[in-house]
């Protein structure tokens, strides 16, 4: 058990160190997210009045797009450089590889959100209710990377790769997107989290179910 956890953190630490040096994934996600928001701004001409209801949707669509970008890179990089093989050759439970990759993807998404949300709130003159927003961001992003990691591992082994991931991922994460958008909307509207308990419950149920199922099935999508 201790060995298992230590291996999870070894892989996670390796991914984070490599990313801190190259910033390949994070910079890509962040610039892409900014562009999405810019385009939304032109498309909707976001006005102050309707902002609170639209902001939640805009933000989560942006996270979803940027997240797909990051998820794809996380396995494409390993696969193209042949390092995934080195990982699979080591006596490591595939579940440990899953957890490390999933946590890494979660961290990348959270970092992007941590920069993007305040920036967005600042630019659009929106009050930022940080404390109630945190659990929503965390639970939503966790669900997204829980299934996203499995699908990304699958997508890199298919012929169409980058196209495959959103086709697989978006229909399945619909509950996460709906629940997270609704909860974020309420938080931006100034009400507290207790009024969105149902949405948080959906998020928690999704996170728990799909972290467990992904953990158990990951060995089937990662090995040959």
């Amino acid at each position: 058990m201790i060995g298992f956890i230590s291996k999870v953190f070894a892989i996670l630490g390796k991914d984070l160190t490599a990313e801190i040096r190259s910033r390949e994934i994070l910079s890509g996600m962040f610039i892409f997210a900014l562009l999405v928001i810019l385009i939304f701004n032109f498309a909707f001409e976001l006005q102050r009045g309707e902002l609170a209801s639209l902001a939640a949707g805009v933000l989560w669509v942006t996270f979803a797009f940027a997240g797909v970008l990051g998820l794809n890179r996380s396995f494409v990089l390993e696969k193209d450089r042949g390092s995934l093989e080195g990982l699979l050759l080591s006596p490591v439970d595939r579940g440990a590889i899953y957890l490390a990759k999933m946590l890494g993807n979660l961290i990348f998404i959270l970092v992007t959100e941590a920069i993007l949300v305040p920036l967005f709130a600042f630019v659009s003159n929106l009050a930022l209710p940080l404390l109630p927003l945190l659990p929503v961001l965390l639970l939503g992003s966790l669900g997204f990377s829980a299934v996203g990691t499995v699908f990304a591992a699958m997508a890199t082994s298919t012929r169409t790769r980058e196209i495959m991931l959103p086709i697989l991922l978006f229909p399945v994460v619909v509950p996460v997107v709906i629940a997270a958008v609704k909860a974020t909307e309420v938080v931006f509207g100034g009400r507290d989290l207790s009024s969105v308990a149902d949405w948080l419950r959906i998020l928690i149920a999704f996170d728990v179910i799909f972290t467990v199922v992904s953990f158990l099935t990951f060995e089937y999508v990662i090995s040959e």
Binding site: V147, V150, M154, S157, T158, L168, V172, F210, V213, S214, T217, Y220, V221
Partner: peptide
């Protein structure tokens, strides 16, 4: 193998 995983998750 892959589609079985999707069949379960879906």
């Amino acid at each position: 193998r892959f589609s079985a995983v999707l069949g379960i998750i879906g």
